[in-house]
Computed example of a mutant assay.
Amino acid sequence: MTAFENLTYDEQLDRFADAAEHILPAFGFIDSDITPLQYINNAVFAVDSPRGQYVLRVHRRGQKPPEYIESEMRWLGDIHAHTDLCVPKPIRTLDDSLLAWTSVDDLNEPVSCVLLAWVEGSSIKPEDTTPDQARQLGSFLGRLHNFSAAYQLPPGFVRPRLDWEGLFGQRSPYNPGEGVHIFTPEQVAVMDAVAQRVQDVMQALDSDPAGFGLIHADFIAKNYFFADDDVCAIDFEDCAFGYYLYDLAPPLLNFSPLAHYADLKNAIWEGYTAQRPLPDQYRDYLETFVAGRHVASCRWIAGNLDNPHVRDRAPQILENRKHELQDFLKTGRLERRSEIL
C-alpha cells in the first residue's frame, strides 16, 4: 500500500480537509469555513462563506478522468438552467473552469475538485418513506429522463456507458482492479450468475433504443431531498449513459428490506410512468436490475479498499451480499439486509 493508504481514516480526511481549504481561493472564496460531510468515495465538505453555503467535492485520485467530471458538471448545469428540476448549480473558478486542481499530502499526484451550490431540503430515511413520497421520486426520475431524451450533447461530452460491459466488464467504472482479490470464488460465481440474468434483461430492452440515455445512476436516499413538495437530487458523480429503467434500481434497493416494499415499488412505478409511459412487462425487469445494482456495489467496495472505512467492513459485507444474491437467484426477489456504505 502507498503511504496515503497506510494512514488512518481520520488522517486521510485531515489531508483532504487541508487540500479543500487550499483550493477554495481558486473559486473566489477567501474567508470560508469547511465542515466534512462525507468521506467514503470522495471527500465532501460543506463550505460556509459570506456568499452563502456550498459543497466542495475533492475527488479520489485516478478514479475518473477530468473530462468525465467536466461533462458531469456541464450536464448538471444544463439541467439547472433549462428545467425546473431541483439540482445543485456548478460554480466555476475565477478563470471560468468547472474543475480546480490541488495537491494532497502523501499523494504523489494532484486531485481535482468541484464546487456546487448548496441544496436545501429534508432527507427521508427509506424506512420512513411513504408511497406518496416514492411516487414523487418516480416522477422526478421520469422528468429527468424526459430532459435526457431530448438533450443535445455538447462537444467533448464524455460519460461512461452502463450497459453490460459498463456494469460488469473490464472497462466498467466499477472495475475493482487489484481489489478483485477480496472476492471468494463462491462470491464470484454468484455475481456472475446475476450478471447473466441482467444481460438477458438488457437484450430484451435493446429493441427499444428510446430506453437508453443519460441517467443519474446513484439515486439513493442520501442523494435526494424533499423540499416544498418537490424532490431535489444531488451527487451526479456516477451519471452515465444507461438504461432508463436501471435508474429505478438504486432507490428500490434501499426500499427492498421494508415491509411495505411492494407499496413503495408500485408508487415509484406510478410516478415514473405518469411522466414516461412504459409497457407493463417492464415492471418484471426491475428486480433483476436491483440485483445487478447490488453486484455493481460489491465491485465498488472492492475498488475502494484504500479507504479504511471501506476496507475494515468489506469482507463481512461482501459475504452477506453473496447470500442476498443467492436468494435472488432462487426467488427472483432481492432483499438487502447488509450494511450500505
Results as ranks from 00 to 15, higher is better:
2 T>L: 10
10 D>V: 11
16 F>D: 02
18 D>Y: 09
22 H>W: 03
22 H>F: 02
27 F>P: 10
32 S>C: 15
34 I>G: 04
34 I>S: 04
38 Q>N: 15
39 Y>A: 09
42 N>T: 06
50 P>S: 09
65 P>M: 04
76 L>T: 09
93 T>P: 01
94 L>K: 15
95 D>M: 03
102 T>Y: 06
103 S>N: 10
104 V>D: 03
106 D>T: 07
109 E>Y: 07
115 L>A: 07
117 A>C: 10
120 E>P: 00
124 I>E: 11
126 P>V: 08
135 R>H: 12
135 R>V: 00
136 Q>H: 07
137 L>K: 00
139 S>Q: 11
139 S>N: 03
140 F>W: 14
145 H>E: 02
151 Y>M: 05
160 P>V: 11
161 R>F: 04
165 E>N: 15
166 G>M: 07
170 Q>T: 12
173 P>F: 06
174 Y>K: 04
178 E>I: 03
179 G>V: 01
181 H>A: 15
182 I>C: 08
184 T>M: 04
185 P>L: 09
189 A>D: 07
190 V>Y: 10
201 V>S: 10
202 M>R: 03
207 S>Y: 00
210 A>T: 14
216 H>Q: 13
217 A>K: 06
220 I>Q: 12
222 K>S: 13
224 Y>L: 08
233 A>Q: 05
233 A>M: 08
236 F>D: 03
237 E>C: 07
240 A>Y: 00
241 F>C: 07
243 Y>G: 01
253 L>G: 02
253 L>K: 12
253 L>D: 08
258 L>Q: 12
271 G>I: 08
274 A>H: 14
279 P>S: 13
284 D>A: 15
286 L>S: 01
287 E>N: 11
288 T>H: 06
292 G>K: 04
295 V>G: 08
295 V>T: 08
303 G>L: 05
316 Q>G: 01
318 L>R: 08
318 L>F: 15
319 E>Y: 06
322 K>E: 14
328 F>P: 03
333 R>D: 01
338 S>D: 11
339 E>D: 13
